Amino acid sequence: MSVPLLPLTRIPLLLVDDHPVVIEGIKSLLKSEADLPVVAQACSGQEALDVLAMHPEVLVAVLDLNMPGMSGTELAIAIRAQRPQVRILILSMFHDHASVAEVLEAGCAGYVLKTSTKSELTLAIREVAAGHNYFSGEVGATMLQNLQLSGLRERPQEPRANELTNREREILQLIAREYSNSHIAETLFISERTVETHRKNILTKTNSKSVVGLIQYAMRHKLIG
């Protein structure tokens, strides 16, 4: 099912990159976007954590992946531990297999290449702020290759997608977009208890142990793009 973006009038941003010129370039790109104010910036992981503590309004953190000291994924994990409501968008020049796997494991909501256009960057920020995931096309291709290289092609003993009920397929799609149980319940007009029951059944039927596993399953069966 198609889920509309939640209307957000203002999405305060934290920008983190060890090259100040990159931060200034992004700020310049975004200055005409009234709903995307850059309220904080930092050039290292520790500085980012210090700055974030002074800016509780931040909703999305745009992080460079490769930084000295604390990497982008290490910083993402630290931010999610301290401020789980902050959505993480990784910005990088690279989309190799190891980097993509690391970003997924860190629970980041998006991954955009530094070669992306302004329109893709602003779309990615708004998507992750609305509770969705966003990956550049090249990153998505690497994700699929990772599934193949790790032997995660569909196997005969793996449950087929059509063994999920229509409701379970709907819920799986929303879980893959990182919707909370309460948000899923509100979207589908069902109770949170019902969502939790469906979630447990989906994990069992797909032989998955985490949201990452569910996303991989949904991608293999073309339930999400």
Rank of each mutant, 00 (worst) to 15 (best):
S2V: 14
P4N: 08
L5N: 09
P12T: 06
L14S: 03
V16T: 04
V16N: 03
V22W: 00
E24D: 14
G25W: 14
G25L: 09
I26V: 15
K31T: 09
A34E: 13
V39Q: 07
Q41K: 08
Q41C: 11
Q41A: 12
C43S: 09
C43Q: 11
Q46P: 00
E47G: 09
A48D: 04
A48E: 01
D50Y: 13
L52D: 05
A53Q: 15
M54Q: 15
V58H: 02
V60T: 03
V60A: 07
V60P: 03
V60K: 05
A61C: 07
L63P: 10
D64R: 13
L65D: 09
L65C: 13
N66P: 03
M67A: 11
M67R: 06
G69K: 05
T73E: 06
A78K: 14
R83N: 14
R83C: 14
V86D: 12
R87V: 06
L91Q: 07
S92Q: 03
S99W: 11
V100N: 11
A106K: 11
G107P: 07
G110A: 04
L113T: 14
T117F: 02
K118G: 04
E120Y: 02
L123Y: 05
A124K: 06
I125S: 02
V128C: 08
A130C: 14
Y134M: 10
G137L: 11
V139E: 13
L144C: 07
L144I: 12
S150I: 01
G151P: 10
G151Y: 07
L152R: 12
R155G: 05
P156K: 00
Q157L: 11
R160M: 09
N162K: 11
I171S: 00
L174P: 04
N181C: 10
S182L: 09
T187C: 03
R193S: 13
R193A: 15
R193N: 10
V195N: 01
N201F: 06
K205W: 05
N207S: 13
K209P: 00
S210D: 15
V212L: 11
I215G: 02
M219Q: 10
H221S: 11
H221P: 00
L223A: 10
